[in-house]
Design a protein around this nucleic acid. Structure first.
Lengths: 231, 231, 231, 231
DNA sequence: AATGAATGAGGGTTCATTCAT
DNA sequence: TATGAATGAACCCTCATTCAT
């Protein structure tokens, strides 16, 4: 456990400064001079490490995204059940975004709408992770956890869209302290979606939805054997 | 109902051109010269109508958004039931975005992350509409349509986030023809969310989740009186 | 003879200033700021008229060269005899170079060694003029004025090379007043070259080299047969 | 004749690389980084040997020019007759330029128009050689080989200007294989110039120009005493 | 109302050169 | 001696914006 505390290299300093400035003022309104000053180096030094202002921009998520998704990929396989896997993936996202607000501001507000970003390794990592999520959903459909007629793309958009929407609004409002933090909204979110797409079969024996006024009828049913509802 | 076909004013021509260029290249990468050329006027003429480039940017959603939400506001009151109202509101959004891709590209990719946009009349209209949606959700909770413990903010984010996510991805992929158009995904989306937040019983509103192997225990409970929840 | 004195346009002012600065300091060492200041306009104004610093460079000889060679082309046809034509062409060059030292400095010292200049209209005009000169030499060979075995390319290089060499050295020495001006050297130059390539006799054209001390032997030979020419 | 194969020093490597790059892209468009990479050393090493980029530029012709003109100076005195001497000097130039295209490109296209180059030792050597050429011409005038009224400066410019012109064009056209190589044009060049400036006196007894059909007349003349022609 | 013409202000990028190691 | 790392100093070029006509 002997931690090698890597001393921050100049390259790291520049990226840190750039993340800070880009997140605060946007890519176009940030200047190299401002970034280099924040990093404590000269303009020219920035160009020693990054060919272009845009290269610098794209280098930032590359480092962070790579680390995160590698960590994510190591954990996911150990989780059993698609619902648990999905929860884990989304939790990674939320924690990444929440623990590094500058990063999430950058990705969600600057990069997502940048077409050239779609061709960077960082975006490839994001896409890959997004694909893992999609596969989990498909797996859930295949193994009967979720309804057969669920649209996995829609479900993924529901997860990612909701989370991104929450973060975007959080950022646009100046990142106020939230009573229910966004992480705390994950389970309610999952509950709603899973509840909406979960297969509810009587005989297979998973879950039962019933209304209490049917209690009498239910009692009878139960004495015979099983029964369920669907939406 | 004699339609006044308004002849396109110079102002409209400029806004049309600007919408087109802004959507295609982004606000920062668009130039006034390019827009004025597209509009068939001179650079200086643009400044006759709009004080700054940003004023021009903000003027575009103002016109469109206002019209749309006025139309929306007229229709909503006539719809009975929160689920129907919510559906109507979201359909307005989707149709607006889908029928005017340049507009949705502008709003979703350029404006949403612009802090100054939040202080424009156009954003006020959007916020108002967003508030109507929130009110519908709250109404649904209050009238027992939705579960008492639903988080209306989360639910709204689910609706809006999902729809925006679908449109953003559609734009980023070059707006391909989709097999299920985004409009066609509205009902599946609603079904999942409503199913996830709908109160399972009209009068009491509590919900019971149980597993069938507890059927025996349940039968006893039911005979006494009761109910519980599981996730 | 009503002269329209064209007022110098801004474009002309810029080109004049640029010619001046480029000739003095060289293309690479001249700055747009310096030129625009000399022209009494702003940097940006230079770019209103010329897309690039290099465009500005190439625009200068275009104007001058075009005028000169048009004038030249009008006069040449009226001159009879290839020697007269050649003299006229070279005189045009010399007068152009001499009356506009900045221009000749630019062309001879900056542009001649610029590969991209070779693809400009100005260079096309120069090439055309150079071709006219070559044609005159060929014509002289064809019509018996010059020796059949003269190499027209070499002869052209002798004319142009000599003139350019004289001007280059004149420039490199700071354009001193010359006792024999370069124009005054034209006739001596022509005399030497023409004398060297002129056919000594129309019909036979073989050449004899002999030394006078062999006069006695020659006399005998001649009484038997023959006679010849030398170059 | 035991050759000392000098191992290429780092300094030589750098100069070789620089010659190569300068010739190809021009002084201004070449970068130290490019040169040092080509030489296999670091940027800083270049500055170990050469104070500035321009020093490096000027160092290149110094080495080559010195060697050449020393060799030239050793040979010339052994040649009898000014025409032979002139021929030898020009042949040295041509062979130098032709055998080392990068060098000639550098000298003719980059250095000739550089005012500071005129103050370098390399240029002094060139000037010295040029002066030897001038002295030969003067000697020819003085000893009656050439016409008394010949302008030695003009004659020198004719030699040097023609040769340089031929080489410049050869370079600007991408150094194509020439049918008559430039070296092969030397004698035709000399023939034309010498023919144009050679003193042609009957009594002094040098050369005779005559046409064969005049043979009869000539025979008579010769029996009296000499005769010549002029242009 | 409309615009041609002009520009101030600024930004990204390059590169010769330096210097501690 | 050799160099990796760093930078100061420019320069080209862009463009939103202005204003006289």
């Amino acid at each position: 456990m002997a931690d090698k505390i890597k001393p921050k290299t100049r390259k790291d300093l520049i990226m840190d400064a750039a993340l800070c400035i880009f997140a605060e003022k946007g890519f176009q309104n940030a200047t190299i001079t401002e970034i280099s000053k924040e990093a404590g180096v000269s303009d020219a030094t920035v160009y020693e490490y990054f060919g272009t202002k845009e290269d610098l921009l794209f280098a930032i998520p590359e480092r962070i995204t790579k680390d995160t998704f590698e960590a994510s990929a190591k954990v996911i396989p150990y989780i059993k059940g698609v619902e648990g896997k999905i929860r884990a993936i989304l939790l990674f996202y939320i924690q990444l975004y929440q623990s590094n607000p500058n990063y999430s501001a950058l990705v969600l507000l600057q990069l997502m709408s940048n077409k050239r970003f779609r061709q960077t390794p960082a975006h490839t990592a994001i896409r890959k992770s997004s694909h893992v999520l999609l596969d989990c959903i498909r797996e859930g459909i295949a193994d009967g956890t979720f309804k057969k007629d669920s649209n996995p793309y829609l479900v993924r958009s529901m997860f990612m869209g909701t989370i991104e929407h929450l973060f975007i609004h959080w950022h646009m409002q100046g990142m106020p302290k939230r009573k229910p933090s966004i992480a705390e909204l994950l389970d309610p979110l999952l509950e709603i979606v899973f509840d909406g797409i979960r297969a509810k079969k009587a005989d297979s024996g998973t879950t039962l939805y019933l209304k209490l006024e049917d209690a009498g009828a239910l009692a009878k049913i139960l004495q015979k054997k099983g029964g369920g509802t669907t939406s």
